[in-house]
Design a protein around this nucleic acid. Structure first.
Length: 599
RNA sequence: GGAGCCGUGGUGUAGUGGUCUAACAUGUCGGCCUGUCACGCCGAAGAUCGCGGGUUCAACUCCCGUCGGCUCCGCCA
């Protein structure tokens, strides 16, 4: 390396650089050896450029003969326009090439186990094991850059709005409610544990008590639950909290934040304000609290129309307090028996006992259940559903919850199958007025839908005693294309309401003090009204980068079984380490018969 | 905790009970080649078919288990 200094990025060179003497450093993407002439595609973070090694270059040519893929080299040479007819329009640098004068091998490389290029078709496990090679691929580098530009835009925006970025502890206290904690044993206090934060929730509220007024943090959070394409045990949140605000202050701040971020990173102009749906509306119309608004295909309630009809499944569902709801699948009247069976099976996975269908054909309604309805009833159904000739009506009868879940899932499935939406669209929506509580049959008590510090809607305070399940929360989610991007709430800052909330959740005052005492004590010293929100940054980047999984947006993600294939974590530790931590392993390590542990 | 899909040279696939002494592409290695850019041409090496057990005269192929990866349900305030 002595004396050599990189002058340009490979991808930067253009015809304007003609005759310039440049020094490039990067990886050998490909070598094309024509015997008397060797081409090297040299790649770095900025892109790719063709280097030409001519026998006249002497030593450089000889070295080029020994070069292999992914070797790290430095090239010094002159930029020149490519000869007529050899321009490569597929490359941004395709009009130029670098005539190598000097070539220096900086490092050799083993042959990589897969191609370092976009659109590879290779087992993801292999990509994760060699993540440093996977990340060399331009598409992965673009995603990592997008992620950086996103956090940079977030910081710039929030800074302009007077927010302070603050840090909160990673070693903290295990609290009840919510996900399973990752625990960290304390060496200094035998038998006691820290927990890694599921979110900085309690700290950020205490920061409001502390008078910070406007806080944000881009912070790692940990939840020891099973993984999914969009869920990792450690993930990154954009966490925001503000004092002296009401719900709409937060919603409009976030809308402007999103508009700024999407404009700066993707050049997308967002129309504000964003649509708002109440939870009730979202469930009724889309069967989901995170509806995909890129397409319509709304759920229609027909319970009143079929109340007295001759089809017992429908009439019975309504009589039993349930509902009959349906979807109008456009142009699907010609679905085959097999396709209908598939849809029925699909709906069945979400609890639907069956799926009734009516095809609207030139000869009228064709359906196995048509005979149970009068012509007038059929006409009313078709009208209510907005059905036109060639459409297929699909109905689910059951409880409101089952009908919503099954039809909501069916709606998404039909949207995919029928290509009802534009992949490029970004359909944001707020979902507001979530229920405050839900009943947990397992725990035989109410649990907080959002968290125990969420403020109920003021108009519903009287219902806290009489009908707690009807109380709405001042909680909100931001949804993009059917994915929950983030959620938050206005917090309880009044002691009487907080006590009420704890008692509804089944905590005695003593239990509440034991579990959240530090927070409740802080709240006694002058708590400002406050509220906030938190976003899943990985999901946000996933949607912006149009990926199917957040693993593609995290440099070093875990597999579905929660392991890291690169480092082979987690791993056993030495008996000495365990001893220091006052721990004794009682189970054998998973999948390793005869392992280190003892029963 | 449950359901489903996948596992064959380095990589991606084909092969679904015997002719498999495992095929194809790509990569790798060697030779030739002065305008290629997924360079081309010639040649070579490279796989006990994830692992263990079973059925069978015979297993890459069927069965059971197990390991690993992925998708989903449960779970994720």
């Amino acid at each position: 390396m002595a004396g050599l200094r990189r002058s340009h990025g490979c991808g930067e060179l253009r015809p304007e650089d003609k005759d310039r003497e440049v020094t490039l450093m990067g990886w050998v993407h490909r070598r094309r050896d024509h015997g008397g002439l060797i081409f090297i595609d040299l790649r770095d973070r900025s892109g790719l450029v063709q280097v030409v090694c001519d026998p006249e270059a002497g030593a450089a040519f000889q070295k080029a003969e020994g070069i292999r893929s992914e070797y790290v080299v430095a090239v010094t040479g002159r930029v020149r326009l490519r000869p007529q007819g050899t321009v490569n329009p597929k490359l941004p640098t395709g009009a130029v090439e670098v005539a190598a004068r000097q070539l220096r091998l900086l490092n050799r490389a083993k042959t990589p186990p897969f191609y370092i290029e976009d659109d590879i078709d290779v087992d993801e496990a292999l990509r994760l094991r060699y993540r440093y090679l996977d990340l060399r691929r331009p598409e992965m580098q673009r995603i990592m850059q997008l992620r950086y530009r996103t956090t940079r835009a977030i910081r710039a925006f929030l800074d302009r709005r007077g927010f302070w970025e603050m840090e909160t502890p990673m070693l903290t206290r295990s609290t009840p409610e919510g996900a399973r904690d990752f625990l960290v044993p304390s060496r200094l206090r035998a038998g006691e544990f820290f927990a890694l934060p599921q979110s900085p929730q309690l700290f950020k509220q205490i920061l409001m008590v502390a008078g910070m007024e406007r806080y944000f943090q881009i912070v790692r959070c940990f939840r020891d639950e099973d993984l999914r394409a969009d869920r990792q045990p450690e993930f990154t949140q954009l966490d925001i909290e503000m004092s002296f605000v009401q719900r709409d202050d937060i919603l409009s701040l976030v809308e402007e934040l999103m508009a700024a971020v999407f404009q700066e990173t993707l050049g997308v102009e967002m129309a504000l304000p964003l649509p708002r749906l109440t939870y009730q509306e979202a469930i009724a119309r889309y069967g989901s609290d995170k509806p995909d608004l890129r397409f319509g295909l709304e759920i229609v309630d027909v319970s009143d129309l079929v109340r007295g009809c001759g089809f017992k499944v429908f009439a019975g569902a309504v009589a039993g307090g349930g509902v009959v709801r349906g979807l109008c699948a456009p142009g699907c009247a010609d679905f085959s028996r097999r396709e209908l069976d598939e849809l029925t099976h699909f709906a069945g996975q979400y609890g639907a006992r069956g799926l009734a269908w009516m095809a609207i054909t030139t000869e009228g309604v064709r359906s196995p259940i048509a005979k149970f309805f009068s012509p007038q009833e059929l006409e009313d159904l078709v009208t209510r559903m907005g059905g036109r000739q060639g459409d297929l009506l699909l109905f689910v009868a059951g409880t409101a919850a089952v009908a919503a879940t099954a039809l909501g899932a069916l709606r998404l499935e039909l949207g995919r199958r029928l290509h009802l939406y534009d992949e490029d669209r970004l359909a944001f929506t707020w979902v507001t007025e979530f229920p405050l509580l839900e009943y947990s049959p397992e725990e035989k008590r109410y649990v907080a839908v959002h968290h125990p510090f969420t403020m109920p809607v003021e108009a519903d305070w009287p219902l806290l005693d009489s009908e707690p399940l009807k109380v709405r929360a001042q909680a909100y989610d931001l949804v993009l294309n059917g994915v929950e991007l983030g959620g938050g709430s206005i917090r309880i800052h009044r002691r009487d309401i907080q006590e009420k909330m704890f008692s509804l959740l089944g905590f005695t005052p003593a239990e509440a003090r034991e579990k959240f005492g530090f927070l409740l004590e802080a709240f006694e010293y002058g708590t400002p009204p406050h509220g906030g929100i938190a976003f899943g940054l990985d999901r946000m980047v996933m949607l912006m980068a149009r990926r199917e999984t957040i693993r593609d947006c995290i440099a070093f993600p875990k597999t579905q079984s929660g392991t890291c294939l690169l480092t082979a974590a987690p791993s056993p530790v030495t008996p000495e380490q365990l001893l220091e931590l006052h721990l004794k392993i009682t189970a054998r390590p998973a999948g390793k018969a005869g392992g280190a542990g003892e029963a």
